[in-house]
């Protein structure tokens, strides 16, 4: 089988862009990242199908000229699943906006508590004073600026 180089590169670019977007704290960006990644995987399925050919209709196309229909069926299934999952993330992003008027994923409350404990336990060092006084609110504000 000779893979299609263009399709492989397209899949690679989609994966790279998807991973980059997924690293952001904004839910919308993460959603777009998931969409790009899923499309990258779908393109990869097309690469797996091998060279393009005629539609696989028995009786109309000679078997030698047919393209492999199975990866298309797999990609179709994957597209439908991605559609449902995207709708669910959109609903969650909307709910998050309703609740907190922000698109940023908040830190876990329990994690913040543990961080506070660790900061309290740590032996204070004159140089660390600026960091040890950081409160969760500061962190949240900081993240918002960054996002």
């Amino acid at each position: 089988m000779t893979p299609n180089l263009t399709l492989a590169i397209v899949a690679g670019v989609l994966f790279a862009a998807g991973v980059y977007l997924l690293l952001a704290r904004s839910i919308t960006r993460a959603l777009l990242g998931i969409v790009l990644l899923s499309n990258g995987a779908n393109v990869l399925l097309l690469v797996a199908a091998g060279p393009a050919g005629e539609a696989a209709f028995v009786g109309q196309t000679p078997p030698a000229g047919m393209t492999d229909p199975l990866p298309q069926a797999l990609a179709l299934t994957a597209i439908v699943i991605t559609l449902g999952m995207t709708a669910f993330i959109l609903a969650m992003a909307h709910r998050s906006w309703q609740l907190s008027r922000t698109d940023i994923v908040a830190d876990d409350v329990e994690d913040l508590r543990l961080v506070e404990l660790a900061v309290r336990d740590a032996v204070p060092h004159p140089d660390d004073e600026a960091t040890s006084r950081r409160t969760p609110d500061d962190d949240a504000a900081h993240d918002e600026v960054r996002g």
């Binding site: 998931i34 990644l37 995987a41 199975l70 993330i89």
Partner: peptide, 22 residues
């Protein structure tokens, strides 16, 4: 949100693996 994003990322890795296996 973190659960969904991580799970879907794992699924994409799995799906890509299936494409390569095929």
């Amino acid at each position: 949100i973190s659960y969904v994003v991580v799970s879907l990322l794992a699924s994409v890795i799995f799906l890509s693996a299936i494409a390569l296996v095929y």
